[in-house]
Amino acid sequence: MRPRTRLATGALQALAIAACGGTTPPPNSSSTAELEAIYWARTDSTRMRFTETDVQFVTGMIGHHAQALVMGALAPTHGASSSVQILAARIINSQQDEINRMQQWLSERGEPVPEVMIKGTELMVHGTEYTLHMPGMLTPEQMRELDEAQGKEFDNVFLRYMIQHHRGAVTMVEELFGQEIATQDEGVFKLASYIQADQLTEIVRMGRMLTALSDLPLSGAR
């Protein structure tokens, strides 16, 4: 870990002094209890290295992910093919976990934690001043179209809109990484990098699935 902002606490400044590039550290004479104390102190102070941009990104991404939960929950009741149902279940599993992690990230930093409420296709995100107008978010009309589709038509609309939605998340990551002040929070860097890699990978997969959904009068085998 490294101190990179002026928010560094005393513990971190001490680290910076001890950790000048390339010096040989003194022999490790600290007791386990001392090391544990250092661990918790540094873990706490590391948490305080973040910017307003990080908070905006994390807060926004909670709402963004939440819409994917709404979309995914429709798959079992809208006659989706089993491959789309599996995809939807994976998206729900992953994005719900990430929402929990992002909520934890905000709460540990004393920032307002948005609460997600889902009722049918309606999504409400409480406790944040940030808007839900984010790249890739489905409009109410698009959400209605998805909800009205069934079977193979649902697969088609779901895949197209989930690609749009994922691309939006990738755009949000690119915007974060394009800031004049680079991301300093390790957790946000890791999370954003992962969202980018994971969702790009899923976009490719959904592209393949969409390609496979031809207008053949086929009945899916499973």
């Binding site: 490294r2 990179r4 902002t5 680290l15 910076a16 000048c20 590039g21 390339g22 004049e180 002040i181």
Partner: peptide, 11 residues
Amino acid sequence: LDCGTQGVRER
């Protein structure tokens, strides 16, 4: 490049 611990803030 210099192994410094202060990070790089600029884009």
